[in-house]
């Protein structure tokens, strides 16, 4: 891990100390702060409360009733297992944009800490050509495999790896989503079996609105395809229209698959990480 990456992850971790993932309905298990209503394998007494009509009479504390004639019901915190999977697109194309790898890791770190603060069982997926789990998901400073050099984008290989992800969890995917494959296929597969899916798109302003330039050879870092282009206004105009259509396609696919789609300015975020996009999207909340 380079010092730049270390610094931004450390910053992200500090920022995420006081936040947690926002509660999600129908999650697999409860938020760790909720009191369990059912007995589990690892019940932990929390407090007493007055008996209410309808309470299971078996939960009455008979010893207290015998000593004090009070009807108190024992309450237990049920140890539940809410899951959070965070997929970091580590394809080489991410490296093409200034600050995008740093932003991707910082956002992943914030989400991982927030998930941990919310007692989620968190998994960090490094989406290389083969997706791998990070052995220290909740301690981002210990993450490994942080190179952005995959030659296959998630659009090409996600369907082979999404089966590894457990169901009924919350899933985040952090990428620029700049690949030619149909977004619906990925988002459908990503949302399948998940309680909630969030797609965080990292884009830089000059990727949306590139300035005109002279003649340049454009290189795709994943396929090594090259195009010699005169980046005049006509070419730029054509590109702008293409990326606008591409983004619309993803937005529509997100709506259709119930995926929350958040766009982040990667360049700005890498320079000054902030929680605002995620607070605003109600993904996280303060403790």
């Amino acid at each position: 891990m380079t010092s730049t990456v270390s610094n931004i992850i450390a910053t992200a971790c500090t920022m995420a100390q006081n936040i947690k993932l926002a509660p999600i309905r129908n999650a697999a298990g409860f938020d760790g702060t909720k009191i369990g209503r059912k007995s589990g394998n690892a019940l932990e007494f929390v407090e007493y409360r007055d008996y209410q009509q309808g309470d299971d009479i078996r939960r009455l504390d008979w010893n207290i009733l015998a000593r004090t004639d009070k009807l108190l019901v024992k309450q237990y915190a049920q140890e539940i297992d809410p899951r959070c999977d965070i997929v970091i697109d580590q394809s080489a194309s991410i490296q093409a944009g200034e600050g995008k790898p740093d932003a991707a890791l910082a956002i992943a770190a914030i989400l991982a800490i927030a998930a941990d603060n919310a007692a989620f069982s968190t998994t960090i997926w490094h989406a290389h050509d083969n997706w791998t789990k990070d052995p220290f998901p909740t301690t981002p400073e210990n993450w490994t495999n942080l190179e952005f050099n995959a030659t296959l984008s998630p659009g090409q290989n996600a369907k082979f790896h999404l089966e590894k992800i457990q169901k009924r969890g919350i899933r985040f995917i952090i990428s620029d989503f700049l690949w030619p494959q149909n977004p619906i296929e990925l988002l459908q597969a990503f949302a399948n079996g998940a309680i909630k899916t969030v797609a965080i798109q990292l884009l830089n302003p000059d990727e949306i609105n590139p300035p005109p330039g002279g003649i340049a050879t454009l290189i795709d870092p994943e396929t090594n395809e090259r195009r010699l282009l005169n980046l005049d206004e006509k070419t730029i105009g054509s590109y702008k229209q293409a990326i606008k259509n591409h983004l619309e396609l993803w937005n529509n696919a997100a709506i259709m698959t119930g995926t929350q789609f958040i766009q982040v300015n990667a360049e700005a975020f890498s320079k000054a990480p902030n929680l605002e996009p995620f607070l605003k999207a109600a993904i996280i909340q303060y403790l």
Binding site: S93, I94, Q95, A96, G97, D176, L178, W179, P180, E207, G213, G214, I215, A216, T217, L218, I219, D220, P221, T223, E225, R227, L228, L229, N230, T235, S238, Y239, A242, I243, H246
Partner: peptide, 25 residues
């Protein structure tokens, strides 16, 4: 200068498919 600039200027882009086909060949 123009030929040198053309030869020297290369740009890595994340989504080459969004760019039009070569217009200088």
């Amino acid at each position: 200068l123009y030929f040198w600039q053309r030869k020297a200027t290369s740009k890595i882009v994340p989504a080459i498919f969004l760019w039009p086909a070569e217009n200088c060949s």
